[in-house]
Write a protein that binds this DNA or RNA. Structure first.
Length: 229
DNA sequence: AGTAAGATCCAC
DNA sequence: TGGATCTTACTT
């Protein structure tokens, strides 16, 4: 925990950068309130033309669109998108400008500002052990707990720490690589959600890691695979 | 213009 | 297990 992430730290392929974000801290200051999150679970997403193989599960799989524009920009910004019309989710953009890629922050432990996070989540305080564990367990909960919203903060820069709509965000890197496990991504249809893309990474044994759930297409693919054997 | 599906969460 | 809730992107 010695220094903030710079743009160059995030210049690699998302799948290579992702494990290094485990154990790092995302720090937000929203309307003067600081919250710190120890990141425990992430997923890598590439774009069209990014990396040696195409990623069929990425928002940027088909190329540049208005929605995924931030993914194509320079590293160190946050791609914040709306999921299912309800939930904001946070990605750390990786790779050089002109190449799409990001690391989705799926879960973490709130290590500072838990009361403010609970208020944003609508969770009653004081927080019990389970409520504290669940505060940022899942990508939608995580963004809400940190006060980051799609409409306000898509594109916010964590490398410069520049303010955007009342918020700043930074990333404090971990000193050492965590004990990392890898597996299929959550909620992704088809092959992209199977072990063909083991691009979900988490800190082994950490209680804040979100419970695994097969994506619809992934479940179908797995069933078809079982059938074939 | 219409529609289907979605990187999710919560209550039943 | 299904409904909420709405945006995006693809089809007619």
């Amino acid at each position: 925990m010695t220094r903030f992430a710079e743009r160059d730290d995030l210049l690699g392929l998302p799948v290579d950068v992702a494990p290094h974000l485990l154990g790092a801290q995302l720090i937000t200051v929203v309307d003067g309130v600081e919250t710190r999150l120890r990141i425990t679970e992430v997923e890598a997403y590439h774009g069209k033309g990014t990396g040696p193989v195409p990623d069929p599960g990425s928002h940027a799989r088909m190329g540049y669109t208005a929605r995924n524009a931030t993914m194509w920009g320079e590293s160190g910004h946050l791609y914040v998108y709306l999921s299912h019309g309800i939930h904001s989710c946070i990605n750390v953009v990786c790779g050089p400008a002109g190449e799409a890629g990001g690391v989705l922050l799926r879960a973490g432990e709130v290590v500072m500002g838990a009361d403010a996070a609970a208020e944003r989540r609508g969770v009653p305080t004081p927080l019990g052990r389970t409520a504290l564990r669940d505060l940022a367990r899942g990508p939608g909960r995580l963004a809400k707990a940190m006060g980051v919203r799609h409409a306000l903060h898509d594109g916010i820069d964590i490398a410069s720490g520049t303010e955007m709509n009342g918020a700043t965000a930074r990333l404090l890197l971990a000193d050492e690589l965590a004990d990392v496990s890898a597996g299929p991504r959550v909620g992704i249809a088809g092959t992209a959600g199977t072990m063909a893309f083991p691009w979900r990474f988490w800190i082994t044994g950490d209680p804040t890691v979100s419970p695994f759930r097969w994506g619809r297409g992934a479940a179908d693919a797995a069933a078809a695979l079982q059938q074939a054997q």
